[in-house]
Computed example of a mutant assay.
Amino acid sequence: MPSATDDLIQRLYESPPEGFVAARTAAIEDARRAGDKPAAKRLAALKKPTVAAWVVNLLALRRPELIEELVELSTALREAQRGLDGAALRELTNQRRQVVSALVAAAGKLARAEDRSIKLPLGEVEATLTAALAEPEIAAQVRTGRLIRAATYAGFGEVPRPRLRLVTDEVDGPDDEDDAGDGDDDAEVVEFPQPNAREKAAAERRRREFEQRRRDLRRELTNAQAAERRADEQLERAEAAERDAGHVVEDLDAELAELERRRTEAQADVARRKQARRLAERETAAARRQVGDVQAALEDLESDEPE
């Protein structure tokens, strides 16, 4: 049974990415105040998804049955590839396009229902779902609903089809009876067109260019992944610094509130003391008037004293 933290994490990955960091920070603070250190640690380890990853997460969390259909189709495609079943592979490839298109449309609808202002990178969503068809590991990640970035797979799709046709052409060539026949049949086999030296050289050049391009792309991928790791680390440091700064602000706010309370109390005390001073001033003035009156009466009395 999913825990409260699991439910919270699901809500985080269902919500638009722009609010992810603030919501995660608030959730971490709530867990810390509740004394739930394991939950706080789990939440702190979560990474913000890209918009494309968020759209795929929505699909996986809200429409998991569609992802299961994708996985079933993936299994059928791999079996057709292993069995070199050209007809089945062509049919499944067409079906793949239809299924992926339908899933992209469903994911886009879910995302627009959440936030119409976000520009949806549906091409990356399509690439991720296509990659899930080709790689069980990617499909497993998609199922979790916690992707943080889009996925791609360059080796799936149309590449096996020309190879399969080549194999089919060889199988559909001269049958066993022709191979076992006389010299005339052998002459027909020799007459099959063979690639000339120029075609071989061009093919070899294309192969070298392809290999070089693949090496370049792999090197670029390695560099990009390293840069991504550095960026993730920098983001984590920045988020930690942001949290620490937030704690400082909270402490200062608390101190400021205490100082404001003391200031209010001091002002009230000053007002009370001012009122007491004014009362004392009135009493002093009255006493002075009384002294003056008594002195005047005494002087009058003394001036009338009989000799």
Rank of each mutant, 00 (worst) to 15 (best):
V56P: 02
L66F: 07
L84Y: 12
E68P: 00
A45R: 13
L46F: 07
L58T: 01
S74P: 01
N57I: 09
G83C: 07
K48G: 01
P49D: 09
L58F: 05
K48F: 09
E72Q: 11
L61M: 08
R62D: 13
A52Y: 04
I67Q: 03
A88L: 12
Q81P: 00
W54Q: 02
S74R: 05
D85Q: 06
E91W: 12
G83D: 15
G83T: 15
T75K: 08
A87K: 13
A76E: 15
E69I: 04
R90F: 12
R63G: 02
E65R: 13
T50S: 15
V71A: 09
L77G: 04
Q81A: 11
I67V: 15
A87G: 08
V55R: 01
L58R: 10
E65P: 02
L59S: 07
T75D: 13
R90P: 00
R63S: 13
E69S: 14
V56G: 02
N57F: 07
V51N: 02
Q81F: 12
L59H: 03
S74Q: 07
L84S: 11
V56I: 07
L89R: 10
D85M: 02
V56R: 01
V55Y: 03
E79F: 09
V56D: 04
L77T: 11
A52Q: 01
L59R: 04
E72C: 04
A88N: 10
V51T: 15
T50P: 01
E65L: 11
L77Y: 07
L66Y: 10
A76G: 00
I67H: 01
A53S: 05
A45M: 10
A87P: 00
E91G: 11
A87W: 11
A88E: 11
K48L: 14
D85G: 02
R63W: 10
K48S: 12
K47G: 12
A52H: 07
A45P: 03
P64Q: 10
T50N: 00
R63P: 00
E79C: 01
R62W: 05
I67G: 01
A76V: 07
L84N: 11
L89G: 01
L59A: 03
L70H: 03
L46I: 12
L61Y: 02
R62Q: 14
R78E: 14
R90K: 14
L89Q: 11
L77F: 06
E79R: 09
A45E: 15
L73N: 06
T75G: 10
G83R: 14
A45N: 12
G83M: 12
E79Y: 07
E68Y: 06
A53E: 08
A80I: 10
A80R: 01
Q81H: 08
R62A: 08
R62M: 06
R78T: 11
A80D: 02
L89C: 08
V71C: 05
A80T: 08
L46T: 11
A80F: 06
K47H: 14
L61E: 03
V56L: 03
A52T: 03
K48M: 15
T50Q: 04
P49W: 08
G86L: 15
K47S: 15
L66D: 12
L58N: 02
G83Y: 05
V71W: 01
V55Q: 00
L89A: 14
N57P: 06
E91P: 00
K47C: 11
V71F: 03
V55W: 02
K48C: 14
K48V: 14
L70E: 09
